[in-house]
């Protein structure tokens, strides 16, 4: 291509931006853009992951907000529902997993590979325990007669916990990926950004659970 530079000329033209501002209204602005291009070509910017995960969180928030509005619209909270004790077990599991996730993230920052693996494993284990506790929760609900179609409240309880669990499984897959992938196969920066993104998602699920816990079981 004629307009692109040949690889030999590595110096970037430094003047760009501006230029059109003086022509009149509606100039195109003078900021110098993303400065991508030159350095990014070889190491694509890892911030893509963290931005993507933030957007995912926004979208999932929308999902749960829509469900919450439906929950309120149906006046579901005004119907009876039991509050099994296993809720506290699952809550402690997921809160603990948040702590271990954070420890894993810090271990990676300090390049303590073994500890990183240890804490990630602990997080995954706690995540699985949480899912187990949720299944026990479902069984307790069934045992108390609150089937999916008993009333709106129990219906929403299953939908909320089920969707939260499904998103948590996504988090577990991400954790498994960052742990299983050989460190040599990607750059340290990318790895760290991926772990940060996973951690952010995990903490979001933590917070989401607390929100759901209060919404479904304690808000009357």
């Amino acid at each position: 291509m004629a307009t692109t530079l040949t690889p030999k000329q590595t110096d970037a033209p430094s003047t760009d931006g501006g230029g059109f501002d003086d022509v009149g209204d509606g100039g195109y602005g003078g900021d110098d853009g993303r400065g991508g291009g030159w350095s990014n070509e070889l190491t694509p910017p890892p911030e893509g992951y963290s931005l993507a995960i933030r957007l995912t969180i926004v979208s999932i928030t929308m999902l749960f907000l829509a469900l919450t509005s439906a929950y309120i619209f149906n006046r579901a909270r005004l119907q009876p529902l039991v509050t099994p004790r296993v809720l506290w077990v699952s809550t402690s599991f997921i809160l603990a997993s948040g702590v271990t996730m954070e420890l894993a993230r810090r271990a990676l920052r300090r390049r303590l590979e073994d500890r990183f693996r240890l804490w990630i494993s602990a997080t995954m284990l706690l995540g699985l325990c949480f899912l187990g506790a949720q299944i026990v929760l479902w069984k307790r609900l069934v045992a108390s007669g609150f089937y999916v179609n008993k009333n709106h409240h129990s219906g929403y309880a299953y939908i909320f916990t089920g969707l939260h669990g499904a998103h948590l499984i996504g988090g577990l897959i991400a954790l498994a990926y960052v742990m299983a992938r050989r460190p040599a196969s990607w750059t340290a920066v990318r790895r760290r950004v991926s772990v940060d993104a996973t951690a952010l998602y995990w903490h979001f699920l933590d917070g989401l659970w607390i929100y759901l816990l209060i919404l479904i079981f304690y808000w009357r």
Partner: peptide
């Protein structure tokens, strides 16, 4: 649609070449 929109937003925000400001 969700997957597509993530891709579009992240690409627009992080992959613009040098000099490609938002207003350009």
């Amino acid at each position: 649609a969700f997957l597509g929109s993530i891709n579009f937003i992240v690409t627009t925000l992080t992959r613009r070449t040098k000099g490609m400001s938002l207003m350009r």
